[in-house]
Simulated assay, not measured.
Amino acid sequence: MTIALERPVSTTDPITLIDPEVTDRLTHRITTDHPEISAPMARRIVGQAAAFIAASGQQPGQSLVPSELVDHGWHAFLLHTVDYAEFCQRVVGRFVHHVPTDEDEETASGPQATRERTLAAFRAAGFAVDEELWPNLAKCTQCHAGCTDSPKNG
């Protein structure tokens, strides 16, 4: 079976959504907080975090979850509230809140289905998926009680 598309699907590198100065700040934050992550890897993480935020904003009410690495980028962005708020308004048209799940709350479909739903939302929004950064999902339950950035997990 062949499916004909009316228009070609283009893929956008999500790093282009972020001002280069902001990208540099976020990259620096990630490499400072996570010295095991190189600057080039941190930059890739920032790009995937931008795509995650944008895709999340386009899928209200649908549970999308970042990978552990992309979660580092999202948390770095959240710490830069002015930059984060501006990005959300410009790219999504509204603020995208970080809403951690309760510790005993699981996504009904399971982690693999949630990962696939998240990456499908990326692709539907036209963003390139950096597969190497998506081996597993973050366990983000109440920040500083279970997030990948949590001191409890270090």
Rank of each mutant, 00 (worst) to 15 (best):
A49G: 13
H75C: 12
A51P: 02
R117S: 14
V82N: 05
D71M: 07
E68C: 06
Q58F: 01
S56T: 15
E103S: 10
F87C: 09
T101E: 11
H98M: 08
S56V: 01
V99L: 11
V65I: 13
L69Q: 15
H75L: 12
A50K: 04
P66V: 06
A54K: 08
E103A: 11
V92I: 11
E105F: 12
L64P: 07
L119M: 02
T101C: 00
A54D: 09
T101S: 13
E105I: 13
C88F: 02
F87I: 06
R115H: 02
L64N: 06
T118G: 09
Q112G: 00
D102K: 13
L79Q: 14
T107N: 09
S109K: 06
A54F: 02
P66G: 06
S67R: 05
L79P: 00
A51S: 08
F77T: 03
A85P: 00
I53N: 03
P60E: 08
F52E: 06
S109H: 04
Q59Y: 07
S109C: 01
G61S: 09
G110S: 02
A76Y: 07
T101V: 09
A55I: 05
R90L: 01
H98P: 04
V82K: 13
A55K: 03
V91T: 10
Y84W: 08
D83I: 02
V70E: 05
H80E: 15
G57W: 07
Q58V: 03
E86H: 08
V82A: 14
P111G: 00
S109A: 14
V96S: 07
T81I: 10
A50G: 14
D83Q: 14
L79I: 07
Q58S: 14
V65N: 12
D102F: 03
E106F: 08
A50L: 06
Q112W: 10
F95T: 11
E105K: 12
D104R: 08
E106N: 05
T118E: 10
A76G: 09
A113C: 01
A55Y: 04
E106L: 05
E116Q: 12
A113W: 00
A50M: 06
G73E: 04
